[in-house]
Amino acid sequence: MRVAAPVLASVLTLVVGSVFFASLGHDPLPTLYAFFVEPLNSLNGLSEWLLKASPLILIACGLAAGFRANVWNIGAEGQFTMGAIAASGVGLFWPDPESVLLLPLMFVAGMGAGMAWAAIPAFLRARMNTNEILVTLMMTYIATLFLSYLVHGPWRDPAGFNYPQTALLPTAALFESFDPAYRLNPSIFITVVAVFVMWLFTDRSFLGYKMSVSGAAPLAARYAGFRESAAVWIGLLAGGAAAGIAGMAEAAGPLGQLSSQISPGYGFAAIIVAFIGRLNAFGIVLGGLLMSLLFLGGEGVQMTLGLPSALTRIFQGILLFFLLAADFFIFYRVRLVRPARDTHALETA
C-alpha cells in the first residue's frame, strides 16, 4: 500500500497538468507528450534524464537519513553550493592542474564543504536547541551570496569578458563523459553507491534503526538510551555530505565552471524526491527519475511551446500536495457519519 500513494499522486498530477494545459489553450495530450515523453525519445534525452536524476537521488538519500529521525535539513541547496564552490576551488587552484589526484581531492573537498555547512546547524540544534529548518535555510541564502561574491569578485575569470563566472576547470578536474556526444558521466556511479549505502544504513544497520526510532517515537528512543544529538548530527551530516558531493559532481560534470546560477533547485526538489520515495532508498531512485523528468519536461515545453519554466515548480508542488493527501486515504479509512451536534462531517477511524 505504501507504493499506492506515489503512483496515485503522479496520476493526479498528470490529470491536473492536463486541465492546466487545456486552460492555457494548449491541447493537453500533445502537451503532456511533449512534457513527459519527448524528452526521453532520444539517447541524448536519456543521458540528460539520468544526468539530472543523479544529483536529485544522491541528495535525497542523504536528506532521507535525517528526515527519518525528524531532522529537517531543508538547506541542501546551500550545502550543494558550498560543495561545488570547494570542489571548484581545488580544481582551479591546485598547483598541479594535471594531477590524477585532482578529482579525488575535489570529491573530498566537496563532501567536506557540504558537511561543514551542515555541521553548523547540527551544532546549533544539538547544543543550542536552535531550529534546524530555519538555520539550514538561512545558510542557503548565505551560500548563494558567497557564490555570487566569488564569481563577481576574486574568482572571476579575467579572460571572461566580465561575465560573472570562473575560468573553466582543467580537464583533469572534470569527469569525462561516457560518450563525447552526451553529457552523462561516471559520477552517476557515486549515486549508485550512495543508494546502496542508504539501503544498508536504513534497512540493515542498528544505527539506522535507532535513527528511525528517534523519528517515529522520540520518547521510546530516549527511554532506550538513543541520544537525540547523535541523530541530529548524523542526519544533518549525511545530508550535507550527499549534497556537497552532488555539488562537486555538478561542477566537475555538466557545469565545468562556476557561475552565479549553478543549480536549478536540486536541493529543494530533492526534499520532494525523498518524500515521494517514502524515505526509502529504492523509492528515492524512482522519485528522482520522476523529478528529473519534470525538470526536463519543463525545459522542453519552454523551448518547444514557449511555456514558462515555472511550470516545473508548480508541478513539483502539486505532486507533493497530492502525495501527502493520498497518504490520508491509504492510511485512514474514511467513512461519512451523520453530523452530531458538532460539525465533523468527515470522520476518520
Partner: peptide, 9 residues
C-alpha cells in the same frame, strides 16, 4: 515551492 512556482507563472 508551489507558491514560488505559481507566482513566477
Amino acid at each position: 515551492i508551489f507558491g514560488s512556482g505559481v507566482s513566477a507563472f
